[in-house]
Computed example of a mutant assay.
Amino acid sequence: MTAPITRHLSRRGFIAAAAGTAGALLLPRAQAAEARAKPLVFAHRGASALRPEHTLAAYSKAIADGADYIEPDLVCTRDGVLVARHEADLTETTDVAKRPEFASRRTRKTFDGETHTGWFVDDFTLAELKTLRAVERIPQSRPGSAQYDGMFQLLTFEEVIDFVAAQSATTGRLIGLVPELKSSTYFAAAKLALEDRFIATLAAHEYTRRAPVEIQSFEVANLRYLRDKLGRRANLRLMQLVGVGAMQPSDVVAVRGKLTYAEMATPRGLRDVASYADTFAPPTRALIPLKKDGSLDAPTALAADVHAAGLRLETWTFRPENRFLAADFRDGAGEHARNEAGSVAEMRRYLQLGLDGLFTDDPALGRKAVDG
């Protein structure tokens, strides 16, 4: 199950290997390989266009709508528990600001190069966090999701794994996990390093020893560490996320290094990424940028360069509201309006570049775009 394999296993070989070791819980090998021959649909924070992000409701909807993988972003509580939140700041995605018992914990912190004022996960124990409830991050654009505000608890990583394993057993469909380690440098400075906690959690669960797991980070040192500790396994890939231009990974900034995301996206930089990661994941507009009028420009060379380096190409993030679409695909219904046809059309345009996977806030639309 965990024997070394060649680093750049194909999509078909990767899924077949994982399915072949998973026993009756997962699809037969041939079915699984066939089911995953197409580009992968990653549910960004679950079905986050339709339900508050990183909740069981968001993950359940994503799986029902055909996502191949669900994404738990991982941060750490004061007492050392990994939980699914997009960042350390709890202000926009929970009801913490309305909880008078936690008013005194409002503070100011800096992570990933930005300073935030609010309430932070590492100032709360898991028991305290469990008293909070999730809310929609952008209610003006997603009122349908906002109607679920206050209904759902925050989740530990272990709870997410158990839920996905149960869904896989129930549906008979192989469902992957694409966890992102968030702000590793920040949590290490707080003596709450994510990596060993994450490795221990993977090892403790039968499902994550067998099912597909693709681990993401915008930092570099943590991915190198994970590659060294986890080795190369049939069910595991590492994904290097990147920003744009002169932005730098937080771990590089911490040591006053000079590496930028732009340098990582050059042919030379991509070869270096391929020495420790399997996937390169730039934002969509790094692949096809926008013109001044907001419409799509010509594609850059990045897609071809990524594949030439032997890396998979997976991009983030497609969202179904007009405000997030290129001008080519907007329908004139208002910036906050859902535009399903436009979102599918935009994803199909990017799929023409040879994507191996895409992140979307609405997996049903991603499934439609991929399936044709």
Rank of each mutant, 00 (worst) to 15 (best):
K291C: 04
T317S: 15
T266Y: 01
S275N: 07
P289T: 05
T131D: 05
K61F: 04
L177R: 00
A19H: 00
V135H: 00
R7N: 10
H54Y: 08
F280A: 03
A309E: 09
F198Y: 04
T117E: 15
L223E: 11
G310K: 03
T300N: 07
G150N: 09
G334V: 07
P28C: 07
S60Y: 03
F329M: 12
I63H: 01
L313G: 05
A303Y: 02
L270H: 04
H86W: 02
H116W: 06
K182N: 00
D297W: 09
D149E: 09
R142N: 09
F102K: 08
A286L: 05
L238C: 04
V160I: 09
G80A: 13
A64D: 13
Q147H: 14
F157Q: 10
T185N: 01
K109A: 09
V253C: 05
V75R: 04
T284D: 06
K258S: 14
T55C: 11
S275K: 08
A58D: 03
R319I: 10
A308Q: 12
Q167E: 13
L126M: 10
E87A: 14
D196I: 00
A19N: 07
A274L: 05
L174D: 07
R45W: 00
R285C: 09
H205L: 09
K191Q: 11
A33C: 08
L74E: 01
N235W: 02
V121Q: 00
H8D: 15
D89N: 14
T315C: 11
A234V: 03
P4W: 08
L129H: 00
A30N: 05
A16P: 00
V273W: 01
L259W: 02
G144Y: 06
R133S: 12
E180K: 12
R11K: 15
R323C: 10
T300K: 04
